[in-house]
Computed example of a mutant assay.
Amino acid sequence: MNRGLYINATSLATNQKKLEVLTNNLANVNTAGFKKDMSLTETFPEKLLAKINGQRSRPRLRGENQIEYETNGQVHRASTSNGYFVVQTPMGNSYVKDIRFIIDDEGYLRTFYQDNTDEYKTDYENYVTDNQGNPIQGAGENIEDLSQGIVYYPPSHVVGTMSAGLKFQKNVTDFTQGNISETGGTYDLALNASGFFKVADEEGNIYYTRDGSFTINQDGMLTTSTGEPLQGIDGNIYIEGNQVSIDTDGGVIVDGDIIGFLDIVDLENREFLRKIGDNQYQMAEGVEAEEVPYEGEVLQGYLESSNVNAIQEMVEMITLLREYEAGQKAIRAQDEMLEKASNEIGRI
């Protein structure tokens, strides 16, 4: 297949998925407590490009190329002009001339991203490897010397690298605080800091939500708008009385008596939260929730708005549509060139 066609096709497919994320954000612009999603993309692995029928010569000796190295806090950056750094990806090794990495909790050199609290994360990220494809541990090492030693120098018939295009990597949820607006509702609750209400289903599975639009069911139990019980520290909360108030500590007061406390927590590993619908989250399969105490306040009679900025999302959508149109034009041009090659040049 013509490589230009393939690269542009992957761009169109990626932009289509990014557009789906944007439209879902816009559809929930008025949903209480909704947190927008952001799309992360990455290129396919950079593969070495060699001369056709090139002679296989011996690899260059190490030490002939000095790398450029700098560090900024936890982030290390290295670049090389003659050789390549090797990164292990799920789709094979990638050869790059410039690399940014951190040292993870186990001491390995890995690529990274930053969450909305600017904390560095390495889950689902790639390992930097040596020439034998082994992940490198750098804890306690001189990282500059280590980076110099792992540069791969290919044979002389290798002339560069090429990529097969772009792919959609994953969604990342932006948990930044939305605006808090007053509603006056008795069971409308908002959190003014990082944290989650805990809810449960009939089977006892625990979910997390920022949507504080709660209600009372026919049994007097405090539930979400879709019927899941809101969890208290001692279990489900039943309201039997007329005067109901909820203080800033999450204490539920009915007719002057405290009947329980809302179970509100924050999560150290909230990057593993996955949306399951109804504005609720569940931990990824095989991951235990790292719950820590909630440090903010509970506001009764208020709701947190969605953190989606409709104007920014619309601007990004227009940009995506322009990119999609440009990709279509590039594919059309490639197709026309292939048509000329097969119909006109073939007659000569």
Rank of each mutant, 00 (worst) to 15 (best):
K198E: 13
S213G: 10
I246K: 05
K51H: 08
S94Y: 00
Q231W: 09
G235H: 01
K51L: 14
K35S: 05
S39Y: 02
T41N: 09
T248E: 15
E325Q: 12
N171T: 13
Y124C: 05
F214E: 10
V86Q: 11
P154A: 05
L321M: 15
S342G: 14
F175L: 12
V244G: 04
G83Q: 02
I206L: 13
A190K: 00
L26Y: 10
Q334L: 03
V21I: 15
V158C: 12
R274M: 15
Y69R: 07
M1R: 10
N53F: 12
Q148Y: 02
T14G: 11
I233L: 14
P59Q: 03
F272W: 03
M337T: 11
A32G: 04
I258A: 10
Q282N: 05
I239F: 05
V172I: 15
P229S: 11
L320N: 13
G73H: 01
G149R: 08
N15L: 15
G33S: 06
L189Y: 00
S81M: 12
N65Y: 08
G165W: 03
L40K: 14
Q148G: 01
P135T: 07
G227I: 03
Q55Y: 10
D98G: 01
R270W: 03
Y207E: 04
G184D: 06
V29M: 11
L22R: 08
N25M: 11
T71R: 15
V172K: 05
F34E: 06
Q114I: 12
K97G: 09
S57E: 15
P90N: 14
T319K: 12
Y124Q: 12
T111G: 05
N217Y: 13
D188N: 09
E325P: 02
L320Q: 08
S79R: 14
T43G: 14
Q16T: 07
Q334W: 06
E203I: 11
G346Y: 09
N72W: 13
A50S: 14
Q55K: 15
G195T: 07
Q218E: 15
E288N: 10
I67R: 07
G73N: 09
N24G: 07
N28I: 12
L5Y: 06
G73Q: 06
S156T: 10
G184M: 04
Y187D: 07
P229T: 00
K329F: 04
F34G: 01
A27I: 02
N126A: 10
L273N: 10
T71C: 08
E68Q: 15
Q16C: 02
P45Q: 07
R322L: 12
D335W: 02
R60E: 14
F261D: 15
D37R: 07
T31K: 09
D174G: 08
N236Y: 07
I237W: 02
S194V: 10
D263I: 00
E106Q: 15
D123W: 00
N309P: 03
V128D: 05
D335T: 02
E268N: 08
P135E: 01
G235A: 05
N309C: 00
R100F: 06
Q132I: 10
T223L: 04
Y207H: 12
Y84R: 04
G184E: 00
G286V: 09
